[in-house]
């Protein structure tokens, strides 16, 4: 491991290279790019949600190219089977004998794009559970490790609800971030047209390797966290539970279940990345507050009343951050 200042410098340099490379193709969306990169560095998976055509798939494709990692894409459909994802045993003839041989599925890669993940059946979705958490696949009683780094970038379309299967809470909890891809601004639209309307398209080069990502992840874990900031983080996560003493009225009214401890781990990791990107060697409360929304929005389960009134989890999180004493 290099010396800490050098590691930090390497972290920032690599991160900025990746950001710049991805930004060659993706116009605007700087927050989304940063958060996706943060999740990748922290070894987490990202669920991208947005209407079609906003560049979700293009973002993942560009990121895979920039990372110089093995990239696979699965277009989820209702007839997709688990074996289509993780692989299957096939009967082959070897040395005059017929034996079963494991045929790897598309999940055996470094970057997996699970496009329109909510179109697959729950059975197929659950096939990703072990893959995302344990980063290995078990078929016919035999476990097969996936490559490192491994992260899933899933997309889902919030508009077309027919024929979709909402992701179960357990699987949602596996995602590091849930990011809403916004509609580009007026200037971004013009820039998109300029970049894609010409004869040539931007060329994406690999600027980082898997080892770089792993090294960056190790540096992130060393960023220190002061006790009072940690206390603030725990208060925020606990305040998302309606039974907690710090729970706000909105939480008590509209939330059925709050975030799991995995949410706190996610916030901490993302906050550390933000601190390093900001040139600091410590985590600040501001980092916690910034990382809380994408880390908790899919981990908070609204009550029937909240669903009926159309309450957004982002509003609940903003309320918690505002009310919890720093």
């Amino acid at each position: 491991m290099p010396e800490t200042p050098a590691a930090v410098a390497h972290f920032k340099e690599t991160f900025e290279k990746l950001r710049a490379e991805v930004s060659k193709f993706i116009v605007g969306q700087q927050d989304i790019i940063e958060q996706v990169l943060s999740a990748v560095i922290c070894g987490g998976h990202v669920l991208l949600e947005g209407v079609p055509g906003l560049g979700k798939t293009a973002l993942v494709n560009t990121l895979a190219k920039a990372l110089h990692l093995k990239f696979q894409r699965i277009q989820f459909t209702p007839d997709l089977l688990p074996a289509d994802i993780v692989g299957t045993q096939i009967l082959v003839e070897r040395g005059g004998q017929k034996v079963f041989e494991f045929q790897q599925g598309p999940v055996f890669c470094n970057v997996l794009l699970a496009d329109e993940i909510n179109r697959a059946t729950p059975k197929t979705q659950s096939a990703l559970l072990e893959t995302m958490q344990e980063k290995r696949v078990t078929v016919a009683g035999i476990s097969h490790n996936l490559g490192s780094p491994f992260f899933v970038l899933a997309t889902q379309n919030p508009i077309e609800q027919d024929g979709t299967y909402p992701l179960p809470e357990a699987q949602l909890d596996r995602f590091f971030f849930k990011l809403y891809v916004p509609v580009p601004s007026h200037g971004d639209f013009i820039e998109i047209l300029n970049r894609t309307g010409g004869k040539s398209s931007p060329e994406i080069n690999a600027v980082a390797t898997g080892d770089d990502i792993l090294q960056m992840g190790q540096v992130v874990r060393e960023v220190p966290l002061e006790a009072s900031v940690q206390d603030y983080l725990v208060k925020i996560v606990r305040a998302t539970h309606p039974t907690d003493v710090n729970a706000t009225e909105r939480v008590k009214k509209y939330v059925r279940h709050g975030s799991s401890p995995r949410g706190a781990q996610t916030i901490l990791a993302a906050a550390r990345v933000r601190a390093l990107l900001d040139g600091r060697y410590h985590v600040a409360r501001e980092d916690i507050a910034k990382a809380a929304t994408p880390a908790l929005r899919h981990r908070i389960l609204l009550s029937f009343e909240g669903e009926a009134e159309g309450v957004k989890t982002d509003e609940v999180i903003a309320d918690v951050i505002e009310k919890v004493k720093a």
């Binding site: 200042p5 960023v223 220190p224 002061e226 060697y281 600040a284």
Partner: peptide
């Protein structure tokens, strides 16, 4: 951005390391 508070906290907890010194 909590720099002084964090430094005091680290000092009180007697935490050491390269990151602490850098901070």
């Amino acid at each position: 951005k909590d720099a002084i508070s964090s430094h005091l906290g680290f000092s009180d907890e007697h935490r050491e390391g390269e990151f602490i010194a850098l901070q």
